[in-house]
Amino acid sequence: MFERFTHPAREAVIRAQFLARELNQRPIGTEHLLLALLEEPAFTAPALTVTFDDVRAGITRLTGPAPDDPDEDTDTADREALKAIGIDLDAVRRAIEQNFGPGALQLAREKPGSGPGPLRRLFSGGGGGHIPFSKRNKKVLELSLREALRLKHNYIAPEHLLLGILREGQGLAMQILAERKVNVERLRAELTQSLNYEAA
């Protein structure tokens, strides 16, 4: 499945882990994936009438921070969870550095001397260890593949990830969207139309 992910979709999945860690929460849920999609510059969906701040506030209000479990081997657990859905972090790191050169994971927005950025921390194992994906979020990633296949696409873009969230329908992301009165049917239709336009 990994090879089907576009670069922005991969970035969103990776960023979801960083955002969950930043919120001191585990596992990585559908809400963290939604938050990561809203932060992805290449992703636009006018019918998604929520902002990054709306979703982040909703997550904090509904869940609060979860306590860390220092005894859990989160690095291994997360790598195994990602491998289960076809994402090998080491392969991603190698591919990025092969295509863009050593140090490519050092993001441009990082300030010199400020330490490693979120992607570098993720791949190097720093930044508090890895966090596993929830079963519901793994299901969303599987459903994003099904949405891509349904639309006869051989790739998974951020829009497919959001369609996976909508199709799963039960996660905290959906609860936040419902509370914010997002028109889910309109959003689904808009995402499908956008993907079909891109594929044409």
Results as ranks from 00 to 15, higher is better:
residue 3 E to P: 08
residue 4 R to A: 08
residue 6 T to G: 00
residue 6 T to R: 09
residue 7 H to T: 11
residue 7 H to Y: 04
residue 8 P to F: 01
residue 9 A to N: 09
residue 9 A to W: 03
residue 11 E to K: 15
residue 12 A to H: 03
residue 12 A to Y: 05
residue 12 A to Q: 05
residue 13 V to F: 01
residue 14 I to G: 09
residue 14 I to L: 15
residue 15 R to Q: 10
residue 15 R to M: 04
residue 19 L to I: 09
residue 20 A to D: 10
residue 21 R to P: 08
residue 22 E to L: 02
residue 23 L to F: 12
residue 25 Q to N: 08
residue 28 I to V: 15
residue 28 I to Q: 01
residue 29 G to F: 04
residue 30 T to V: 09
residue 30 T to P: 01
residue 32 H to C: 07
residue 33 L to I: 13
residue 35 L to M: 10
residue 39 E to G: 09
residue 47 A to C: 03
residue 49 T to Y: 00
residue 52 F to Y: 08
residue 53 D to L: 12
residue 53 D to E: 15
residue 55 V to I: 11
residue 58 G to N: 02
residue 59 I to R: 11
residue 59 I to M: 11
residue 60 T to Q: 15
residue 63 T to E: 14
residue 67 P to M: 14
residue 68 D to F: 13
residue 70 P to D: 07
residue 71 D to M: 15
residue 72 E to S: 14
residue 72 E to L: 14
residue 74 T to N: 15
residue 75 D to H: 10
residue 76 T to V: 12
residue 77 A to G: 13
residue 80 E to K: 12
residue 83 K to N: 15
residue 85 I to P: 01
residue 88 D to Q: 10
residue 90 D to P: 02
residue 93 R to G: 06
residue 93 R to H: 12
residue 94 R to N: 11
residue 95 A to D: 14
residue 95 A to S: 06
residue 95 A to E: 10
residue 96 I to N: 05
residue 97 E to I: 01
residue 99 N to R: 13
residue 101 G to N: 06
residue 101 G to M: 09
residue 103 G to M: 12
residue 104 A to S: 13
residue 109 R to C: 13
residue 109 R to N: 06
residue 110 E to K: 13
residue 110 E to I: 10
residue 111 K to V: 11
residue 112 P to Q: 08
residue 112 P to H: 10
residue 114 S to Y: 06
residue 117 G to S: 06
residue 118 P to M: 14
residue 120 R to E: 13
residue 121 R to M: 12
residue 124 S to M: 12
residue 124 S to G: 14
residue 124 S to I: 01
residue 128 G to S: 09
residue 129 G to H: 03
residue 134 S to V: 04
residue 140 V to D: 06
residue 141 L to T: 01
residue 142 E to Y: 15
residue 149 L to M: 13
residue 151 L to V: 01
residue 152 K to L: 12
residue 153 H to W: 07
residue 153 H to G: 05
residue 154 N to Y: 07
residue 154 N to V: 03
residue 156 I to L: 07
residue 156 I to Y: 04
residue 157 A to W: 00
residue 157 A to N: 05
residue 158 P to G: 04
residue 158 P to S: 05
residue 158 P to Y: 07
residue 159 E to A: 00
residue 161 L to D: 08
residue 162 L to R: 02
residue 165 I to M: 01
residue 166 L to F: 12
residue 167 R to G: 09
residue 169 G to H: 07
residue 169 G to P: 12
residue 170 Q to I: 08
residue 171 G to L: 09
residue 177 L to W: 05
residue 183 N to Q: 07
residue 184 V to I: 14
residue 192 T to Q: 13
residue 193 Q to V: 13
residue 194 S to W: 03
residue 196 N to V: 14
residue 197 Y to V: 13
residue 197 Y to C: 06
residue 197 Y to R: 15
residue 197 Y to S: 12
residue 198 E to W: 11
residue 199 A to T: 04
residue 200 A to W: 08
